[in-house]
Design a protein around this nucleic acid. Structure first.
Lengths: 219, 219
DNA sequence: CGGCGTACAGTACACCGTACAGTAGCGGCA
DNA sequence: TGCCGCTACTGTACGGTGTACTGTACGCCG
């Protein structure tokens, strides 16, 4: 970023710059390849400079997560409550798929605070307005959220595996090597399982079924 | 494990011993605290000895995952297909909650092979026997699996956060600090959200709704 | 009993997060 | 305008990690 010889001036750093740069690096090379040292080099400072703004790597991860979760407000579509809910869930999935690092952070670090409040508010409000009781709204929210999380996580990993040709080959080899006597149904459905292992249609299918299963709770 | 002075005899190691010991360490101290060096020390061996059996840490993780997924066959309850499916899903959740490290491995490393074939077979067979088409069975399976994964992941992290009193305090403080004008519904449902954020009842609720949403697909 | 393959040991390297102590640039006050 | 103190940044260092490469001695087989 800057020349190698100069000492970085006094106000080169601020939390937001650090977070956005960290996010850029994580999006480029993956969370696991991310390191404080690489981030510091990218910013043209020494590694320890970051500790002025964050207690450590974990806190920086939290900040990145909060940044992503706070930046986007998920829009609620107009229409019947089923559609409203589906639109929020779809928006959340898209956010998670756009930033796999966010997915990894959510999956590896417990929530500490109000980070998800925005998406929670959106979803829970739609559920309440649809007529769900307090308890059912809370339950339905948790269910929807965890479903989207799991689906996005799985999809993201399938995508990762399908990225490199070696992974594709391995997947195919695996399917072919399955014993037909041990796993007859899996072998029979190999094609369908591979075809539906991810993608918008699969998510839409699950989401519709889930929301449909919620309807009877409205009496 | 052995004295410090002696050289380890020739056949102290084998893949299974390594995997089970690794699993024990991971279950005791968490996946992130696990290191090859600690494992080697536990086995009374130098770190590089492990490389005779595994290409590296990643491959060892895969082996642990396969060990856990292969050991237990999830039982299918007798009864209507809804109940069969729910029983398998519940069994999978219990396995994931019993071994949080398995959860972490599943969430961080893409599947490479037939590891999930056993649970896939169980679920997909039940769905097919219930009368679902090939495509719908595959879709329903993927949906169920990702739901259980997401729910268990979320629950496991909530549990972790609730473990230490500091985490509990932080959760409560967070709820209290939420602005009532920004997040009125969340504040209104704070109690319900906290109460339903995990546990068997929450999972059961989600699972029932999900399976109920599947029923219309049978025509 | 001897030699050979290989399961283990040892050393080394690059990299990680971060504790601790020093230094220099900037804002604010005289 | 000039100086002073605060603090944002630097440097060094430590203990840890995964793992590549090289050496060694053990136990099996002829």
């Amino acid at each position: 970023m800057s020349d190698k010889r100069t000492r970085a001036p006094r106000n080169t750093l601020n939390p937001e710059l650090i977070v956005t740069t960290a996010l850029r690096l994580m999006a480029a090379d993956g969370v696991e390849a991310f390191s404080l040292r690489a981030l510091a080099k990218e910013l043209g400072v020494g590694p320890m400079a970051l500790y002025t703004y964050f207690r450590g790597k974990d806190e920086l991860f939290d900040a990145v997560r909060d940044h992503l979760l706070g930046t986007r407000r998920l829009a609620t579509a107009k229409g019947p409550w089923q559609q409203q809910i589906r639109s929020v869930a779809t928006g959340l999935r898209e956010l998670l798929l756009e930033y796999p690092c966010l997915l990894r952070i959510l999956a590896s670090r417990p929530l500490k605070g109000p980070e998800t409040a925005a998406v929670t508010e959106t979803l829970v409000r739609a559920l309440r307005e649809a007529g769900f009781s307090k308890e059912n709204a809370a339950r339905a929210y948790t269910m929807l959220f965890t479903f989207v999380l799991g689906a996005a996580l799985w999809e993201s990993q399938m995508n990762a595996e399908k990225q490199d040709p070696e992974g594709r080959r391995r997947l195919r080899a695996t399917m072919a090597s399955l014993s037909e006597v041990d796993y007859p149904t899996v072998v029979d459905l190999a094609g369908e399982l591979a075809a539906t292992s991810g993608g918008d249609a699969q998510f839409e299918f699950g989401l519709r079924a889930l929301v449909a299963g919620l309807e009877p709770l409205l009496d």
